[in-house]
Amino acid sequence: MQDQGFMKSTIGKDFLYGGLVFLTICAFLGFLSNPATRDVIINNYYDIGMFFGIVGLGLFFIGIGARTPGVIAGGAIGSFIVLTAPQDALVRYLSLSALLFGIGMYGMIKSRNAVRVLMSIELMLNAVNINLIAFSRFVDPVQVKGQLFAIFILTVAAAEAAVGLAIVLAVYRNMSTVDMNKFNLLKW
């Protein structure tokens, strides 16, 4: 099971993640260094500051030993309320959908149980549904096309859940576990 590929070694991962962090910081700094964008950001996107403040606060709380789920929930709710309170209704719905999508994505990447991964995917699909229905309510209230798309997404979600569960069953039958970290038969 000892895989010595590049990604498997600690050094390789460190390089990759270090590079990602570096790139992000560079991009953000570059974003800020341009005076035009900086002004735009400071004038219009005041919420970015709030957002990063909340994220920092969350990291601080985790650092001093708060429970992660509580911090995530509090941070998400707080940032959601702060960010959307002055907006109009459509933006609220869209932001909620984005937030749920983000939570679903976090769960999908992080969880080790295959069933929970499936649940997270369902959550993401539902977030998308909120998006579509909010559009159909506020943009296209007569021919509700967004709802039509939502119906198709429901179908796809049902199919996905069925096939996903079947795959999980089959995997369980072969490996006697549903831990995602142990599904390493398929290599790079």
């Binding site: 789920p69 749920l100 679903g104």
Partner: peptide, 11 residues
């Protein structure tokens, strides 16, 4: 919805 979905991924 938000708190419950956090609950889903963290329970």
């Amino acid at each position: 919805a938000i708190s419950l979905s956090v609950g889903v991924i963290s329970d």
